[in-house]
């Protein structure tokens, strides 16, 4: 729940992307958001009917029964979260499976808690509502700065060398280029980032743009847009709303391979140099609650995922990963430096 959300709510994905059409009819799986309790329609009607007999006194007892985990106080549940970098319904499905897998492997109750924006995932990690979160490069750094002892523990193989792709509407007259300096042709164009707190849709692209002498504050036509997600960036650039934009390479590849992008209208013009991106960050106090070896066991639950096992393969596929590997805090020093330079980290 934080500032940037509406625009940034999600940046898409580092996960393999099912054809977008699969989203149709999946609204049942979408998170209903806080409050956590979901009332099926019938129960809702029952409530309304019961109204006639319900008295004020019942209210407090009801409140108590339903006050489950209202403030993250339940120590027995290991709560995981993720930055909302893609379609919320897909996240719900993906992390439901992950939670089940972790529950089996770790022998504790695991819950997935959906959030609405990048900054909220950081805030809730800080408050302890979330014990472990799948962060992007920038949000991971922000989260560790706010929770002493928090640790980056796992990343996918591809996260070591992640790239962004600059795309352009074919009518905009922009040419494919091979080096960062070539980005200077974007000056004076209508340009959109993805999410404001996104590493691949904003932070690193902005870093490379500034290297090319293009300041997002002043050099585009109008201010730079924040479409909110990689999917929306592609859609808005293809429609011509913006002449150019930048997306995460994995999304671009996935979308083009699935034939969902009209390449007559939108085309890739530049692939950025590599940088570190997504990773799991875990709170230090899990050790007190779940045992000294808990972090090790969590790492194992991911690194031992076996592509030959159908269940494991599904998780890997949903993450768009061939494997999970260990990582550590030092890998994100560059990201932190860039973020400080761009004013995205205070202090």
């Amino acid at each position: 729940m934080n500032a940037t959300d509406s625009l940034d709510v999600f940046e898409a994905c580092t996960t393999p992307l099912r054809p977008r059409t699969t989203r149709a009819g999946t609204s049942a799986t979408r998170p209903s958001g806080r409050p956590l309790r979901r009332l099926p329609g019938a129960r809702m009607l029952l409530v309304l009917a019961a109204l006639l007999v319900v008295t004020g006194a019942c209210a407090s007892t009801d409140g108590a029964t339903h006050g489950e985990r209202a403030s993250g106080g339940d120590d027995q549940v290991f709560t995981i979260g993720a930055i909302p970098d893609q379609d919320p319904e897909r996240l719900q499905r993906l992390y439901g499976i992950v939670a089940d897998h972790l529950g089996e492997e770790l022998g504790v109750a695991v819950e997935y808690e959906p959030v609405t924006d990048y900054a909220a995932s950081v805030s809730l990690f800080r408050t302890g509502d979330l014990d472990m979160v799948w962060f992007g490069g920038l949000t991971g750094v922000q989260a560790r700065l706010q929770v002493d002892g928090a640790e980056a523990i796992l990343q996918r193989g591809i996260d070591e060398r992640f790239h962004s792709i600059f795309i352009a509407n074919t009518a905009a007259g922009l040419q494919p280029v091979d080096d960062v300096a070539g980005l200077s042709q974007l000056a004076g164009k209508r340009f959109t980032f993805g999410s404001e707190s996104s590493t691949s849709g904003r932070l690193m692209p902005q870093f490379f743009l500034e290297q090319a002498g293009v300041s997002p504050e002043t050099d585009f036509a109008g201010a730079a847009g924040f479409s909110g997600s990689h999917d929306k960036t592609i859609e808005l650039v293809a429609a011509g709303t913006f002449e150019a934009g930048v997306v995460n390479e994995q999304v671009w590849t996935s979308r083009t391979e699935a034939g969902e992008v009209d390449l007559d209208k939108v085309t890739a013009i530049f692939r950025t140099p590599p940088y570190h991106d997504y990773h799991w960050v875990i709170r230090p106090d899990v050790v007190e609650r779940f045992g000294d070896d808990f972090v090790t066991r969590v790492k194992a639950a991911f690194t031992e995922l076996d592509p030959r096992d159908p269940n494991d393969a599904e998780i890997l596929e949903l993450f768009g990963a061939e494997e999970f590997i260990e990582t550590d805090n030092d890998n994100y020093a560059e990201i932190e430096q860039v973020a400080r330079d761009l004013g995205l980290i205070a202090q």
């Binding site: 956590l36 407090s60 009801d62 108590a64 006050g67 209202a70």
Partner: peptide, 11 residues
């Protein structure tokens, strides 16, 4: 008010 308290589970 009663339904709201119940629905949101205010504590």
């Amino acid at each position: 008010v009663v339904v709201s308290l119940w629905h949101l589970g205010v504590d």
